[in-house]
Design a protein around this nucleic acid. Structure first.
Lengths: 259, 259
DNA sequence: TTAATTGTTCGCGAGAACCAAACGGGAATA
DNA sequence: TATTCCCGTTTGGTTCTCGCGAACAATTAA
C-alpha cells in the first residue's frame, strides 16, 4: 500500500547472512563473546554459531583471541574507505578543524545515510566542552541542528518518509515533536541558511549548524559548532557565530565543486 | 601436519556468508557497483546477488544509491568501536600527536592483527612529508620499523608462524628477505629498544620505531616517526630521535597500566 | 573422581539458497 | 514511434547447504 521510493524493503533475504549480521552486532554489544554465549543470546545451536564465526574470521571481520571472538580492526580500514568515498569529506574535515580552532568550541560535520545522521568528524577547540557524539555515531535527524540543516535540503516527501521510518522521539522538552512544527522549522532554516539547537538534545548545550549545498546533490551534509549556553547567547549566538558557520559551509561548497 | 596454534582454519564454513563477504569486498574494490556487474564478477546469478544485497542493506552494511550499491558509513561506526577496544589507543593517539608536533615529522601508531600490522593513527608535523599509509591500512610486519618492533616482542614460534602465512615479500633492495636475517634484526631491536627502517619500504624514507610493551601482553603495538633521509641522518637519526621515540613508547606503557 | 563448563566435530533431514528464466521499466537507437 | 538492449527485480523449482542435536574433547570446579 505504501511504497517507499528509495530504499525499498522488497524481495527475498538470505537467512544465513542475517545470522552472521546478528552475530556481528551481538559480538559488538557484548564487547567480545564466546560460542556458547552467542548461541544462547541468538537462540541458535552452538554448531551454527561456530561455522559462522569461522567464516567471519576467514574474512577477517572477526578476530579470535583465545576463546573470545571480537570485532576486527578490518572495520577501521573499510570505515576509512567509506568516509573518503564522500567527496566533500576532506574539505569538510579541514574546515571543521579550522572552525574549532577559530572559535575555541566543538565543531562537527554530519552527513545523511539511511534516513539518519552520521557524524563524520569532530574537532575540539581550546574551550570545548565534551559532547557525547563521536565519529561514526548515528542520530535521528530531527533532534540536532545538524540534522535539521540536512532535512531542510531534502524534498518534503523524503522528509515524510524519514519521519515515518524513524518517528520523532523526544529527547528533552525542547525537541521538535510534531510534523507541522518540524516543517515550520525547516522553512525558517531555508530562509536564514542556519539551524539552531537550543538545548533540544541536552540541557545546557546549544548548537548552530548550516547545510552544505552539494553541487551534484546526492550527498547531504551539514557543519556545526556547539557549546554551553553560558557562552552561546546574545549577539554571539544570534549573529556572529551563525555567520561564521555559514561561511564555513560556503567554503566547503566552493571547494567541493573544484574536485 | 602443521597445526596452527592460534587462528586455526578448521571446521565448516557457511557458503552464503562467504558470498556476502565477497560481495562486500567487490563493492569496495569496484567503488560501488550494480547487481549485474557483481553477478558477472563473482560468477553468481543475479538473483543470488540481489537477495544478498537486500540482506546487507537491511543491516546497513551496504547502502543503495539509485541502482548502485555502495559501502555504508556504518563501517565508520564499527571501526571507531574497534579502535577504542584497544585499551592503549587513546593514550597512544595523544602521544603520536605530541611526537608529530615536537619533531615536525610524521608520527604513527600500529598494532598487530591477523599476523599483519594495522596503522591506527597518524599525525603530521610542520615539515612532514606525506607517506602512503593511512589509518586502517594493513602491511606485512617485516617491512616497516613499526612492524619489526612488534615482531621483536613476539615469541619466536609466533614469528615463524607469521612468516609461514605471509612470507617475506621484498619491497626494495633493503627489505629483510631471509628468516635468519630477520631474527638477527629482531635480536638487535630487543637489545636497543628501537627499530630502524632505512629505505626498506620506500626510497628516500627513513623511519624509527619503538615497541610498546603492553602490561597485560595480549595486544602488541609500536610507535614511530618517519621522514626524508635528508633530515634523518647523523646524530639526529642515530641518537636523538630514537630517544624521543623510546620516551613516547614509555609514556604509553606507563599510562596504559593506570587504566 | 565427578560434574559442569567450555569449544569442536559429525550425521542427517528439512528447507534454504542457489539458478534459470521470465518480467517490467528506462534509455538509447532506429 | 517502435524496437532493441540492458538494467534490476521477481518467481518456481531442485539441489545441496545449513542448521540442529548429540556426541566428543578439553578445562575448570567442586
Amino acid at each position: 500500500m505504501n511504497d517507499t521510493p528509495t530504499e525499498a524493503p522488497s524481495g527475498r533475504r538470505v537467512q544465513a547472512v542475517q545470522i552472521s549480521c546478528n552475530i556481528l552486532e551481538a559480538v559488538r554489544e557484548m564487547d567480545g563473546a564466546g560460542v556458547s554465549e552467542l548461541a544462547d543470546r541468538l537462540d541458535r545451536s552452538k554448531a551454527t554459531i561456530h561455522s559462522h564465526l569461522a567464516t567471519l574470521v576467514d574474512n577477517e571481520l572477526i578476530v579470535k583471541h583465545d576463546d573470545s571472538y571480537e570485532i576486527s580492526l578490518r572495520f577501521v580500514d573499510i570505515g576509512e574507505y567509506a568516509k573518503n568515498r564522500i567527496d566533500i569529506y576532506e574539505v569538510a574535515k579541514d574546515e571543521v578543524d579550522r572552525l574549532a580552532e577559530e572559535t575555541g568550541e566543538v565543531a562537527q560535520f554530519m552527513v545523511e545515510e539511511h534516513g539518519r545522521g552520521v557524524y563524520l568528524h569532530k574537532a575540539s577547540g581550546e574551550n570545548a566542552i565534551q559532547t557525547a557524539s563521536y565519529t561514526g555515531n548515528r542520530k535521528d535527524l530531527h533532534c540536532t541542528a545538524l540534522g535539521k540543516s540536512i532535512l531542510s535540503q531534502l524534498p518534503d516527501d523524503r522528509v515524510d518518509e524519514i519521519i515515518d521510518r524513524h518517528g520523532l522521539p523526544q529527547r528533552t522538552e525542547n525537541t521538535v515533536s510534531s510534523r507541522e512544527e518540524l516543517f515550520d522549522v525547516l522553512e525558517t532554516i531555508r530562509e536564514r541558511g542556519v539551524a539552531f539547537d537550543d538545548e533540544e538534545i541536552l540541557k545546557g548545550l546549544r548548537c548552530i549548524a548550516a547545510p552544505i549545498q552539494h553541487p551534484t546533490g546526492d550527498i547531504h551534509g551539514a557543519i556545526s559548532i556547539s557549546g554551553p549556553t553560558s557562552r552561546f547567547k546574545g549577539d554571539r549566538f544570534h549573529e556572529e557565530l551563525p555567520e561564521v558557520v555559514k561561511g564555513a559551509a560556503n567554503v566547503i561548497e566552493v571547494n567541493a565543486t573544484q574536485v
